[in-house]
Amino acid sequence: MSFAGLVLDGLLALSLPVLAWRALSARDLYRAVILFITFGVILALAWARLGAPDIALAEAAIGAGITGALLLNTVGGLSRKNDKDDERPDEPTDRVGRPWRTRLAVTVPVTILAGGLAWAVLSFPAPVVDMPSLVGEAVAEGEVSHPVTAVLLDYRSYDTFLEIGVLLLAALCVWSLGLSAVRSTAPEAVSGSPVLAGFVRLLAPAMVVSGVYLLWAGTSQPGGAFQAGAVLGALGVVMVLTGLLVPSLGRGGVVRAGLALGFAVFLLVGVVSMLATGGFLAYPEGFEYGLILAIEFFLTFSIALTLTALFTTVPPREKGGGA
């Protein structure tokens, strides 16, 4: 390893715990969220240095990007509420004091846990199953050449299928709460600004192209539906914030169908393959590549829409119904 690489790794390893601690101990929620986003970006770099570019992409896009946007949104909502609350102007709810008893009650179990985990990790035995070489052998025989995509959409496709269910469920849960719409957090002057809107219009095609490229690349190199969906979802969030997209996203039935599309296609492919080959999600010989790409295409669309919908929090408006 080169000297520069060593220095970079050392910096990353040092800054991660420091950032995590600062984020947790920040007395101001806004500062904590910014530190959390920084933590996510540094963590993505660490994954990249560890040779896991797929996880790095996912961490940067979802862990830092989308989650950060959701948290900032929440902080914005909380402080707006505090502004209206005239009764205790000196004591906003985003400042939390911690007495020493609380600190002790947190520190002692965490220290014990950390010690136990370190002891456990240091005494790992030699694995009985060599998973990487198992995956390598299977990839060599299959049609998809990128091992991460092969694991996610072939060997462990059932897990991914259920995870897509979790995304649909997340949107459903948020809608079931009956919250009010996210308005553009920017002041009127900014959200109505022609410069900003024009900039987003320029940005949008580039983001769409990157999203589609990430999706396409996923079969042979790092990338795939989750990363592509996150990039397109971020575009959706930006468009909502600049007022190019209304919070309710469009006609109710269409939005609903769009959210459920990825999960429904996955389910349908599973059932059809069960009828064709006798096994759930066992792709027929020769159709593997095509089916995986088709699933990923619909997943990308639904993931992007779900992330945007989670951000806006309101269900689409119904006009006369019909789904």
């Binding site: 269910g165 649909l168 469920l169 459903l172 809608w175 109710g252 039935g253 609903r256 169908a257 959210l259 459920a260 999960f263 429904a264 389910l267 599973g270 059932v271 069960m274 006798g278 759930f280 269900p315 119904e318 119904g321 019909g322 789904a323």
Partner: peptide
């Protein structure tokens, strides 16, 4: 394949019930 039915049947029902959320009222 019976083993998948207790999982897939409610999942399919969840998807359909989700799509039906768009309709209003008694229907």
């Amino acid at each position: 394949n019976w083993m998948l039915a207790p999982i897939l049947v409610p999942l399919a029902a969840a998807t359909v019930a989700f799509l039906l959320m768009g309709i209003r009222g008694e229907a």
